[in-house]
Amino acid sequence: MNKIGWIIYNGNLPGNKFLDFAQMLHEAAKEQNTKTYIMQNNNLLSSLSTNRLELLTEYEVPDFVIFTDKDIYLARQLELIGIPVFNRSEVIETSDDKIATYQVLANHNLPIPRTIIAPKVYTNREEKYLPNLDHVINQLGLPMIVKEAFGSFGEQVYLIHTKDELEEKVKELYGKAFMFQEFIQSSKGRDLRLQVVGDRVVAAMKRFSTEDFRANITSGGIMEAYEPSEKAKEIAISASKAIGADFSGVDLLFGENDDYIICEINSNAHIRNLYDCTGINAANEIVEHILKKLRDSRG
């Protein structure tokens, strides 16, 4: 019997890019003779009681789920009731939290910018106790990056040039999780996006901007197809595997002497720009990988 899957996206977010990703996966599954349904997360309610976990839905539960959202609780609920989820909730949770991501990467001895985690603050109070900013500057230098732990599309990332700017930004972010990070000058306004599926890089593009230190397309960056080196591929695959992802978009910065530095790992990276840029539809590779993994799990 052919398996039936759900492709879950966030139904509360504006715009069509989130639905578009789900539709690309849905069409790829259809081409591989697999039936899927596109579902909004807000139509699926998780129910808990002393001796029962269930999903409140009028639909029959699927054999597997491709999860394109960051609703970690829903992803975990699906796993707890026995449904394979791609990517797993633990992967989504780690990827969504950039501090947690860097900790995992550092533990795997993978190249990341030098990073200092801001101390945890529980409330945004009028009287603010700041970390030793002189010590941070001595360690990382100026300019430096201040990056919030949670954010998307290159937002919540700030380039800081002076101590006064740094103090102002720390006060502004008081109560949020964030980090101080070395600014990779050699990669200013340019980076690489590598789409990893399983043990392979299936597509890649270079992004660059002449107007912004970030190269994200949503920040005005320009994209072009790119053939990454074996070293870049190896780092991207290792990064994806380190967080346990079945598929991910890995962003690499250009370091000195042809080195690469991991900027981010996106467990649910949108693939439309990558397709428009390279002509490669990563959805086909993602679905093929998932179906093979499901077949292998049956023995």
Rank of each mutant, 00 (worst) to 15 (best):
F21M: 12
Y59W: 12
A29L: 06
L56I: 15
V146F: 04
V91S: 00
A22M: 09
T36K: 02
R52P: 00
G82C: 08
Y73I: 09
P111L: 13
F64P: 01
E54P: 00
N132L: 05
H26S: 13
P143S: 11
R114K: 15
V85T: 03
I99F: 07
N42E: 07
K17M: 11
E31P: 01
N42P: 00
L25T: 06
A106S: 11
N87T: 07
F21I: 05
E54H: 10
I72C: 05
Y73V: 08
I137T: 06
I81T: 10
N132T: 05
N132S: 12
E27W: 04
S49T: 13
Q23C: 06
M39A: 02
E90D: 13
L25Q: 07
L48V: 11
V121A: 04
P119C: 07
T123L: 10
K35M: 10
Y102E: 07
L45G: 00
P14K: 08
T115R: 13
I83D: 01
D97P: 03
P62I: 08
L130A: 08
D134N: 15
V65G: 04
P131C: 09
V104P: 05
V65C: 08
G141C: 09
L19N: 06
H108Y: 12
A29C: 14
I137A: 07
Y122H: 10
G141S: 10
L140V: 05
G82N: 10
S89P: 01
L19I: 10
K35S: 12
I8S: 05
L133R: 10
I72T: 13
D20R: 15
V146D: 05
F21A: 07
D96G: 09
H26D: 15
N42F: 01
A75W: 02
L48P: 00
T34S: 11
D96R: 14
K120C: 06
H108E: 13
M144Y: 03
N138W: 02
K17E: 14
I38S: 02
F86Y: 15
P14D: 05
K120Y: 12
